[in-house]
Design a protein around this nucleic acid. Structure first.
Lengths: 161, 161
DNA sequence: ATAACTGCAAAGCATTTGCAATCTT
DNA sequence: AAGATTGCAAATGCTTTGCAGTTAT
């Protein structure tokens, strides 16, 4: 679930390579931001990251957080989702691809994988003459009829939205 | 592609039933809004609908358009999507379910269907102990390497985002 | 040196909301 | 009559941007 320090440092190195490629610069703010962002378990918003940075005593402005998140996404260290009006990010480093299931009863977000669906998506794109670049699949689900909403909360790979 | 007048009037009747069920009221604004919205081909934003209403001489405020779109979605006459920051709607009446493919090269939106993917989604939800209520699948694609971007524009079931 | 980065505050954009007047039922 | 709806303008919430000063390469 959690990321190791070595993985964080490796990611940092790969981000530096990304910056060099784009002729951009590494700064103290970006370094702190990456370390903090990658250590975040589950989904987080710009606001969440900003709060953590602030609480840790790091002086990074909200504007810089937004600009940094965009870069981290371009560098493929983070992946962004638009589940609702607020963009949510999650670490991509050292995590397998997955889609999301959102329970309309308890609002929780569950992660799942389905290789068959993945390969059919590839085929669907091809069938229409395109190359699949990326995709977003969200399943809106409900706790089975008659079940207590808590049932939902017990699910294993659960994350807070 | 287009909807018939009869279908529009039927939809209107079903919306009135929906309102009655919820103890809400039918108004001139809502009537005009539905007729205009349902006749819209492809995807449209609140702004698009507002413009059409205004151009047709109907006096409906933006606030009412937003409030109405929410109701039309609840009544399942429209379906909303969050492809980007602006919500886009499409007529649900008399249309089969489909997902979307968005070309990152030419920005166009293509509709597609895949029954196998649909049924696997159902199974995935079940496997995790939930009932599938709804879903959103968006494939981000690219015109094949070496192709002119126009290739993309020629695709049949294309819609403007 | 040069170009990129940062913080700040202001601006932007889509959408929502409080309220008084006005319609539906 | 009671409650829902409307338009307006103000407010909201998230995100972006212009600018002047600072910093990395």
């Amino acid at each position: 679930m959690s990321i190791t320090d070595t993985e964080v440092e490796d990611a940092l190195a790969s981000f530096e390579a990304f910056l060099r490629r784009k002729r951009l610069k590494m700064t103290a703010q970006r370094r702190t931001m990456i370390r903090t962002a990658l250590k975040h378990v589950g989904h987080f918003t710009a606001e969440d990251l900003y709060r953590r940075l602030t609480e840790a005593g790091a002086a990074v402005s909200m504007a810089t957080v937004y600009r940094g998140l965009t870069l981290l996404e371009e560098a493929k260290l983070l992946e962004g989702h638009d589940f609702d009006g607020t963009r949510r990010y999650e670490r991509l480093v050292d995590r397998e691809h997955h889609d999301h299931m959102i329970c309309l009863d308890c609002q929780r977000v569950l992660e799942f994988q389905d290789d068959d669906i993945e390969s059919l998506q590839e085929k669907a794109a091809k069938r229409h003459g395109f190359d699949l670049a990326d995709h977003r699949l969200v399943l809106y689900v409900r706790c089975p009829e008659g079940d207590q909403p808590e049932r939902c909360h017990r699910a294993e790979s659960m994350r807070t939205a």
